[in-house]
Simulated scan of single mutants.
Amino acid sequence: MLPLPVLSVLLLAYQSSASSVLQHDNHFDIMIFTQHWPYTTCIDWENRSRQNSCSRILQTAWSVHGLWPTQFGKIAPNFCNTTWKFDYDSVKEIRPELDIYWPDYEMRGHPNSLWTHEWEKHGTCAAQLPALSSEEKYFQTGIELSKQIRLTEWLKEKNIVPGPAKYTKSEVYNAVLEKTKFRPHIDCEYIDGVQFIKEIKVCFSKNLTLVHCDNIVSTSSYGESTLTNSRGSCSEDKPFLYPAKMNPAYLSLLTSQHATIAFIVFGCGLLTMISLMVAVMVKTNRNVRLGYESL
């Protein structure tokens, strides 16, 4: 049996080691200000499950997804103070502006789900900065940045508007770069092989001045984290849709493509039945992912 002094030293070393493992590194290097396109967000959300639905989209405009303190090369820090829960009373005075600039579209069975998630996961980390040290300051800052980063207006100036036309990542990237003078991050969502523009990220320093969105990590559709360049996840050479409504023409296009395949393989007599079966499979056999809960 080891002498008592030796056991005491070993116990202290173990406790110190365990403490260091459990201790979170809550520092961050950059603030990622993310705006998302509501129609893509809701098309994606509703197509993950037939139980999912979105609230009515009241205005066709880019809106705030979140303001995320971030370490270079990591998706961190997160949930920096698990005891600091979202308190609606802290932001009720700015609710009218939140509904305009930071609306919560994805209906998740409880009110204010987006704001709750963004505050508890990201806001409690941003609160390390005096300018973001309360719920009201955090959300008000997001509102003010949205007024500054006028994506809807900037894209329209370059004739990039929602509708049936397709656009390239370079067109959007250059439109934002021209206005901010700093490299943005353009992200897309792939739904049944069709690419939709979903998010545009613009980055800020800790004193909320614009910086390049370099060395930030992107989360793939399957929840995998990958280090990306500043241009983002949209394909460099494949145009994407910028939808103007919830039921874009691509859905009927997919159905007709599946119907054609069914006709060739099984013949005209089984066309109707196979088309219906494929339509159901298109809707239900998707990888179910967590929406903004992964962000």
Rank of each mutant, 00 (worst) to 15 (best):
L4E: 11
P162D: 08
S256M: 13
F266R: 11
W45D: 01
F240L: 02
F28L: 11
K147D: 08
V202S: 03
N247S: 11
E236G: 10
S235C: 09
V288P: 02
Q140S: 13
E106C: 11
E136S: 07
I216R: 01
F139W: 06
P69N: 09
V176N: 03
A131V: 13
M1N: 12
G193T: 07
V202T: 13
T40H: 04
T168A: 03
G223N: 04
H27R: 14
V194P: 02
N47W: 14
N207G: 06
L22E: 00
A127E: 03
A249Y: 01
N47Q: 10
T34P: 00
I75K: 05
K121C: 12
L12D: 05
I216H: 02
D99T: 13
R108K: 14
M277N: 07
M246G: 00
S252Y: 08
I274G: 01
V91H: 00
S256G: 03
H65N: 12
L11A: 10
S252V: 04
Q71H: 05
L241G: 02
I264C: 10
K147M: 09
D99I: 09
E106G: 01
E106H: 04
V278N: 08
Q257M: 13
F28H: 07
F182I: 15
P69M: 10
T83R: 09
V265M: 10
R231K: 10
V194E: 12
H65T: 09
I43H: 08
F33I: 08
L4Q: 12
Y14Q: 07
K92E: 00
C80S: 02
V217S: 03
L58C: 10
Q23S: 15
G267K: 05
D99A: 15
Q195P: 00
N26A: 07
H36C: 06
C125K: 06
E293W: 14
S221D: 10
A175I: 08
F240C: 03
C42R: 05
L254E: 01
N47T: 11
W84K: 11
Q257N: 02
S252A: 11
C80E: 03
C234Q: 03
I160W: 01
K283Y: 14
K181T: 15
I32C: 02
I149G: 01
M1Q: 06
C80Y: 01
I32K: 06
D104N: 15
I274W: 08
I100E: 10
M277I: 14
V172F: 02
A165K: 12
E46H: 08
